[in-house]
């Protein structure tokens, strides 16, 4: 790790002003990604501004029935929060199926959204990587890419976005609240994650010094019966090969409401809009579920070792829909 300097701040405007004034500085929250990437020279800020004392740890009710997660609320605290578990179980489940208890105590939910990809070539400073060093190429295209994305890829980058929480937030149409040198903004979660395109180094529409202060979950009754299903190489403490966040209501045998998002398959937490279009109003049958899965993965692009994810993705979507429909019928 290169030498760094350190500042600790206790209010939001000072945190933003301090980072904004120094291009070589970065916020330090839980540090679970940042300290790791500092140590392997992938991220190289000269100065860290410790924001852990900022008053952004609350989970608060919003007028109208929504919920605001403070940006610095820890993964473990949000996962165990009674209101989150009751109204948005997919959020709680996505958190508990990620990382380890120790990491969940450390990592903030804002940091979870901002975490960098786990592509081994991104993390290897000897390798070509357009995300880490724009213009150098992508070693993953013909490399060890079993874990890489099949949706939302470009010729420049196929790194999978690793967040589970982000997938649940995509299904919920959450809103990311930020504060920066230009003031406060509310960014729909879908706009908060950028596709790699020709600029994979740019993952979020944030300016330097702009801080994620919170995440707003909108009121959504169907979310009280939502689920998060994660398929991975080992049962715990592992990133997703495929994950599905699902909330669905069935009325008189037809799908009245459907929200579906995918993890492990794409370069950003992926809202399965093609599948939702097939399912909306359709009979809750195996045929609908299969057609929805086929529609969502129709545009998938494999890169050798990760081709299995296309079939695994379809099967996991069908399983999530089938199990949820059964639960709806018996409810």
């Amino acid at each position: 790790m290169r030498p760094i300097s350190y500042s600790r701040v206790s209010d939001v405007s000072t945190a933003i002003g301090t980072v904004a004034a120094d291009p070589g500085s970065a916020f330090l929250a839980g540090g679970t990604t940042q300290v790791d990437l500092l140590r392997i020279y992938v991220e190289q800020p000269r100065r860290l501004v410790d924001i852990n004392d900022l008053p952004l740890k609350q989970v608060e009710e919003l007028p109208g029935g929504g919920l605001r997660l403070g940006g610095l609320a820890r993964m473990s605290d949000v996962a165990e929060h009674p209101t989150v578990r009751q109204r948005y179980p997919m959020v709680s489940e996505s958190l508990l199926l990620g990382a380890s208890p120790q990491l969940r105590h450390m990592a903030s939910v804002a940091g979870n959204l901002m975490q960098r990809v786990r592509c081994t070539y991104f993390r290897d400073t000897e390798a070509a990587c357009n995300k880490r060093a724009p213009g150098t190429g992508c070693s993953a295209m013909d490399g060890v890419n079993r874990g890489h994305a099949v949706l939302g890829t470009s010729d420049c980058c196929i790194a999978t976005h690793p967040s589970d929480l982000g997938v649940a937030l995509m299904a919920l149409d959450a809103v990311v609240r930020t504060e920066g040198p230009a003031g406060q903004r509310s960014i729909p979660i879908d706009d908060f994650y950028l596709l790699p395109g020709t600029t994979p180094e740019r993952e979020h529409p944030l300016t330097h010094g702009e801080l994620v202060t919170g995440i707003d979950l909108p009121p959504l009754p169907v979310a009280a019966r939502s689920r998060y299903i994660k398929i991975r190489d080992r049962e715990s403490y592992e990133f997703a090969l495929v994950a599905v966040a699902i909330a669905m209501s069935v009325v008189d045998g037809r799908i009245a409401e459907i929200r579906l998002a995918l993890g492990g398959l794409a370069t950003k937490p992926w809202r399965a809009r093609a599948a939702e279009r097939v399912l909306d109003g359709a009979p809750a049958t195996a045929d609908s579920f299969t057609r929805a899965a086929e529609a969502e993965l129709a545009g998938a692009v494999p890169h050798g070792m990760n081709a299995f994810k296309i079939e695994l993705g379809k099967r996991t979507i069908v399983r999530a829909l089938t199990e949820t429909a059964q639960r709806e019928e018996s409810a």
Binding site: R8, V9, S10, T18
Partner: peptide, 12 residues
């Protein structure tokens, strides 16, 4: 400066 802010410690 705020009481505990903008105080740069290190890199030494």
């Amino acid at each position: 400066p705020a009481p505990d802010s903008a105080v740069v410690r290190g890199p030494d």
